Computed example of a mutant assay.
Amino acid sequence: MSNKPHDQDRDTIDFGFEQVPKQEKVNRVADVFHSVADKYDVMNDLMSFGIHRIWKKLTIEHCSVRKGQKILDLAGGTGDLTAKFSELVGDDGLVILADINDSMLKVGRDKLRDKGLIKNIEYVQANAEALPFPDNYFDCITISFGLRNVTDKDKALRSMWRVLKPGGRLIVLEFSKPQYSLLNKAYDLYSFHVLPFMGKVVANDSDSYRYLAESIRMHPDQNTLKQMMTDAGFGDVKYYNMTGGIVALHLGFKF
């Protein structure tokens, strides 16, 4: 698992276990999510045995969202968090579902509109490294299972800090490093053998799910990401391991 936070110092970047030119990663990640968008929700349930719903519920609780607030659900994909935020902020609030991938954004928009959620939600195709929003705009930003796919994570974290209001919070929900050796071994077996097979059977795409497994291993571990958030300007940064550290929730504030 990667412990190198300074992606901006390198000419190449990881795409799973492969090193590619930085400008190439964006397009290759886009191809992955164009491929999996239609089956994304189904595969999430299968891959996590439904546990991702508990992880997201805990994420919502740590956001402490109130009526009238502005929320950015970054890399929000098919809108699971956006749907709940929409209820919490009420008619006077605003939730922006942002994703760099137009296929994922379309799936999310259609899903939320089918649920009748249209009043306080906007959709923006955006790169996390250069968010197209004013300074000090959002009360809370979440990025759920998206940061590991960002090319320059340090730049993205600084961009998130810029658009947060003073007193606002960033919540990062992401796969991380399991804390127990036996769990780590079982997780590797599952990720590199079972997961690509499920991707082939359900989504007819084993390669994309092999990349997703590799991208998890290349993502910074808990303490490295905590330091990256601190370096980007966030204060009182802490993290909570879930499911033995398979997933970690990082929380930081803008003071």
Rank of each mutant, 00 (worst) to 15 (best):
K22F: 04
M160V: 07
L97V: 04
R210C: 02
Q222E: 11
G252K: 10
D45G: 01
T59D: 02
E214K: 03
L212P: 03
L112C: 04
K70I: 11
K4C: 02
T230S: 11
V95G: 12
L189C: 12
K4L: 07
I71V: 12
L189W: 11
K226P: 01
M104R: 03
L94R: 08
E18M: 15
K153T: 15
R66A: 06
L58G: 01
G235M: 08
G235L: 15
S48H: 10
S2L: 15
R217S: 09
R148F: 00
Y211F: 03
L212Q: 00
V95P: 03
L157T: 08
L251T: 08
L147R: 02
K84G: 02
L225W: 03
N184P: 00
F49D: 14
N149Q: 03
Y190C: 02
R162T: 12
M229E: 02
S144M: 02
K4T: 05
S191A: 09
G199S: 01
A156D: 05
F192N: 00
F253K: 10
A186Y: 12
P21K: 14
G79K: 08
N204K: 12
S206G: 06
K111W: 10
R66M: 09
K106M: 14
L173M: 15
A156Y: 03
F197L: 14
A126N: 09
Y190K: 05
V36G: 07
D91C: 03
F15S: 13
F33H: 07
P196H: 02
V42L: 09
M47W: 00
M104W: 14
C63G: 09
K177W: 13
Y190P: 08
Y123R: 13
P166A: 05
F49I: 14
N120T: 06
K155A: 14
K153E: 09
L74Y: 06
K238C: 10
N44M: 00
L249S: 06
L164M: 04
K22I: 13
G77W: 03
S181C: 09
S103P: 00
M47N: 07
G116R: 04
M43C: 01
E129K: 08
G50H: 14
R10G: 02
V172H: 09
H34I: 04
G90Y: 07
N136D: 12
E87S: 12
H62A: 10
R148W: 02
M242T: 07
S176G: 15
N27A: 08
D7E: 15
A128S: 05
